[in-house]
Design a protein around this nucleic acid. Structure first.
Lengths: 134, 134
DNA sequence: CGTGTACTTTACGTTTACGTAAACCTCCCC
DNA sequence: GGGGAGGTTTACGTAAACGTAAAGTACACG
């Protein structure tokens, strides 16, 4: 008895609408079972949705996310396919490295600004305290 | 004589279209000088464009990018503003931390897959070599 | 003066990722 | 058997981020 979910249940868990879940199916990112006309989602769909959400947080389009997930569960049999496959993965990885660097740069800048603000705040509060002391 | 650029020049440098540059201006992200009716971009615009592109690579919307850049060159005078300001920056930072974690997870998975592929490739090539040896 | 080259405004078109509404099942419960 | 609760399809609407003409301006060059 492998666990299964209704669409509302799944949507709630990921904090999205049922419309969105169906939309992802329409785009080929999910493929739930059916009980009559109702959709039944299994563990595989849950994992996929998790990957989709992560992809979105990274700013990927649904199409890119789909391609990535295809990579995840494809197994290339031919040697030529295999080497191409590796190339694709490496390209993807280096894109992520760029993004990681961007994030680190941004974090550094924001930390700098944050510190500036904290210093300024100290000064101002210091003066206020001094003013209310006499 | 502070360096300046035409729109085409700037667009070429960042590998975007002039339409895009004007669009960013329309959204309040750039504000070039004018020589008659023509736009003249200075160093400040270049820096801003660089920030915009980085924001886009991070998957931010133009609106979010605008807000971030506002943070960068605003200087909050009131203490209450200052503390709010710091809160905003911290929220932004923690969002970036999440994204960074997402990237690291993704990189780990992809590295795993890449290794799998490399092993598989070794095996296959090994067999091919053995087959062509006799 | 005509031709280019570079730039301008105006405006409608397009893709992505859904939102929102309408109209229809279907099972369960009182 | 009337009504929820939860699900379904169909389809039009929408915001963001530009693309893509169309038509005009401004200046240099032969």
């Amino acid at each position: 008895m492998t666990e299964s979910y209704g669409i509302a249940e799944l949507a709630r868990e990921f904090d999205i609408t049922t419309r969105t879940v169906r939309f992802y199916e329409d785009k080929g990112l999910l493929s739930p079972e059916r009980d009559g006309q109702r959709r039944i989602y299994g563990p595989r769909d849950r994992v996929r949705l998790k990957l989709i959400m992560r992809g979105k947080r990274l700013g990927l389009s649904l199409e890119e996310i789909g391609e990535l997930m295809d990579l995840y569960d494809a197994d290339p049999s031919e040697v030529t396919q295999l080497t191409q496959f590796i190339d694709v993965i490496r390209a993807r990885k280096s894109a992520l490295e760029v993004q990681k660097q961007d994030i680190e740069d941004s974090l550094a800048e924001m930390t700098r600004i944050e510190k500036q603000c904290a210093d300024l705040l100290q000064q101002k509060q210091g003066r206020n305290a001094a003013a209310s002391e006499e």
